[in-house]
Design a protein around this nucleic acid. Structure first.
Length: 147
DNA sequence: GCCAACGTTGGC
DNA sequence: GCCAACGTTGGC
């Protein structure tokens, strides 16, 4: 079992949109590395952190599960050509009780190695270590007051 | 195959 | 809105 993080701008597609849909094809990714993760590395049953980017505040909003990896991204098809872009079908699992902000991730010692916070990171689909995944779930479940 | 120019991402 | 970082494109 592997763990992942996907980014979405909540103005475009938020965790609440995802909850309403129940499941969605993670279309629109136009980066080969991210595509390959969804195409070749994801497996059904893998768990996914749903991250809100380009908003205030950015952070992890909920959890998803991979239903089906490596499906054709219909939004990227060109007539008469073999498909270039693949995506994964994701199922909504839950909203975190506490939104885990990017700030709190950055200030958490055990999460310093997360790919998410490495400089220059721009991948919209990326792997997450199991320990990191669990830590974020824990932070999302805890009733921690803001400072 | 190099690399400059350009476009995009995403935090701030 | 700014800009650093990085991917992509295209001329050579």
């Amino acid at each position: 079992m592997k763990y992942w993080l996907v980014k979405s701008e909540p103005d475009v597609y938020s965790i609440d949109d995802f909850k309403k849909d129940g499941a969605t094809d993670w279309e629109g990714v136009r980066n080969y590395q991210a595509r390959n993760f969804m195409w070749k590395d994801m497996q059904a049953g893998d768990l996914v952190l749903f991250y809100h980017s380009s908003c205030e505040p950015p952070g992890v909003a909920g959890l998803a599960e991979v239903l089906e990896p490596g499906i054709v991204d219909k939004s990227g098809l060109e007539k008469g050509k073999a498909p270039t872009w693949y995506c994964a079908k994701l199922k909504f699992v839950k909203k975190l009780a506490n939104f885990v902000t990017l700030e709190s991730i950055k200030s958490e010692k055990s999460l310093q190695k997360m790919r998410l916070i490495q400089r220059g990171n721009r991948l919209s689909v990326m792997p997450v270590e199991e320990i990191e995944f669990q830590k974020i779930c824990e932070m999302g479940a805890k009733n921690m007051e803001m400072r």
